[in-house]
């Protein structure tokens, strides 16, 4: 027993060092795997507050660009308004609508919650975007996040007032997307090399693709509302081993300077999940 104590007191420095290394590595690898180490919730609030202060100053520098981008988005939305479209009156007799309930409201699928971006990174292999909106304001894990220009990512961690978004520039990010002009859907991933350049894989070679084609979110995604711009095709390459393309996209969202975002809540997600669960149960 005495020898054990002697050993410990002699190598206390080494043992302490090894202990701290093990703690650090455990934190690192468990976090990357599950995205939700408990302590990060607390840390979010603290580092989020500091980030928020900094962002309040930083915001002023990009006001002009932000206004520009919001204005383009407004224009696009205004052009979709019903009142923009006019058609010749061809009604023959007036009929009163007898349905009392507004059926549109019941079937709302996506709800957009505005949020301010308080920090973003592009330098590392796993980049995150932080939003000033958390569980207290209706944000939950696994919700989609889009910006005024296009898709940003998925919420992976929420605290009371902040949330952490896994951006497209993340090694584990995977977004179901398709070519805007039609057929073929694939997955958008990031190879970790150049920021703002992501890869679209699994698009079959039978589809005609050319440089400059738009890639949008697919209706098969359970998170993203369909039709949001992911990026524009920059380079077309053949995947030698399979019969699919590897397309390099320039992301629609500029991750260096994104300032505003919308968290998208899928109102029918619970129903969909419950349905999928029964299928799994039936198969067992």
């Amino acid at each position: 027993m005495r020898n054990v104590f002697l050993f410990i007191s002699r190598y206390i420095n080494l043992l302490f060092f090894l202990f701290l290394q093990v703690v650090a590595l455990t934190l690192l690898f468990s976090y990357n795997k599950f995205h939700e180490a408990a302590f990060m919730g607390v840390a979010n609030e603290v580092s989020g507050k500091v980030n928020l202060r900094y962002n309040n100053v930083e915001n002023y520098f990009s006001l002009k660009k932000d206004n520009e981008s919001l204005r383009t988005q407004n224009t696009r939305l205004l052009n979709l308004l019903k009142s923009d479209f006019d058609w010749p009156d061809s009604i023959l007799s007036i009929v009163n609508d007898t349905i009392r309930i507004d059926s549109l409201e019941q079937y709302r699928k996506y709800l957009y919650l505005p949020a301010k971006v308080i920090s973003t990174t592009v330098n590392s292999q796993n980049n995150y975007v932080m939003l000033h909106r958390g569980s207290g304001q209706g944000v939950g894990v696994n919700m989609a996040v889009v910006g005024p220009d296009g898709v940003i990512g998925t919420v992976v961690n929420v605290s009371r007032n902040m949330s952490v978004v896994m951006g497209m520039l993340h090694r584990q990010s995977k977004i179901v997307a398709m070519l805007k002009k039609g057929s073929g859907f694939g997955e958008v991933i990031w190879d970790g090399k150049t920021p703002n350049l992501v890869q679209l894989i699994k698009i079959p070679k039978t589809v005609k693709v050319s440089k400059g084609d738009s890639v949008v979110t697919s209706q098969y995604s359970d998170k993203y509302p369909p039709g949001h711009l992911v990026g524009v095709v920059e380079k077309v390459e053949d995947d030698k081993s399979t019969s699919t393309y590897v397309l390099t996209l320039r992301t629609a969202t500029n991750f260096y300077s994104v300032q505003h975002a919308y968290v998208v809540r899928n109102m029918q997600k619970e129903e969909l999940d419950a349905l999928e669960k029964t299928i799994k149960k039936d198969n067992e």
């Binding site: 290394q21 703690v23 650090a24 690192l28 690898f29 603290v46 500091v50």
Partner: peptide
């Protein structure tokens, strides 16, 4: 690490 969202990465290197 709290700021860069990589718990343990910089901590491991700094401890070393």
């Amino acid at each position: 690490d709290f700021f860069t969202k990589t718990p343990g990465l910089h901590a491991a290197a700094c401890t070393l």
